[in-house]
Amino acid sequence: MEPVLEIRNLNVDYGLGDKAVRAVRDVNLTLHRGEVLGLAGESGSGKSTLAYGLTRLLAPPGVITGGEVIYHPEKGDPYDVLGLSDRGLREFRWAETAIVFQGAMNSLNPVHKISTQLTDVLKAHEPKMSEHSRNARAREMLKLVGISSDRMDAYPHQLSGGMRQRVMIGMALILQPQVVIMDEPTTALDVVMQRQILGQLIELRERLGFSVIFITHDLSLLVEFSNRIAIMYGGRIVEEAPAATIYRDALHPYSKGLLSSFPALRGPRRELAGIPGSPPDLAGMPTGCSFHPRCPKAFEPCSTHIPVLGRPDSPDGAARSVACWLHPTEQPVG
């Protein structure tokens, strides 16, 4: 499969110098054209920081300290997003990679009409477009996400939470980007609405052909909606595999822990178990594998050596990778 976004050795710190907190460490991840890549992990595992980092939206004191984010446009040569000029970056944003943010409630500016907020993207990216066609396009996007076009003149507070998030999805697709990053897009919504919106999104993806990076702490949603899943812990990716493989046969003890912390709807009953302990303090990371203090299977090398993400030594291990001493890797991936 052809890659559309390649993250190579991305490092993100909060703060500078010795006191810097390393929120994302040596992350390698590839998003392929047309796939939904899930990114899961507890709060503070670096998922959102990764998303903000690769679009260079980190608010100070966040800094990208190393790595590359290679974007493959539909036509033309791939380029490094981290090396773009301010102008180039502005043009790249939303036109190539759009984001649906965590806070459905606060992503829209309360003092501007929906129509204004939909069309100012078009104004910025396609200055030659006439006002009439801008409005037509905005109405079309609303229709696409199932909102009647007479809501164009509504203000955000006149819409429900679900409607607002659908407006945001419509807004994300208005320039037909190749990549859509969804950062916990449905966290603030009820379960029924979550499902409805995600179902709609997957349907739109099939129609329009964009790729999705889907960030959430809800692994059950990912198993259902994504093609591949990457699990993050303490700023690193600890396991990456096709969704079904993770669900059936997770290798990393942390992935197993996440999977057994929510109930399955069908299938045999099984014991629900949480992961003991709490997420690591990013400012004072444990030595070795950062999960070892909480890991039920930790053994001798775990506390001293950092396991490298690589292909595990198993018969069907070709399409997956894991960073765990229980599964010694043959070659590092990336």
Binding site: T55, L57, A59, L89, R90, E91, F92, R93, W94, A95, A98, I99, F101, Q102, G103, N106, S107, L108, N109, P110, D120, V121, A124, H125, M168, M171
Partner: peptide, 15 residues
């Protein structure tokens, strides 16, 4: 400036 809609506005590539 720390509101979400400001981040969204930046992400939208507005000037």
């Amino acid at each position: 400036s720390s509101e979400d809609y400001i981040t969204v506005a930046h992400a939208k590539g507005l000037s």
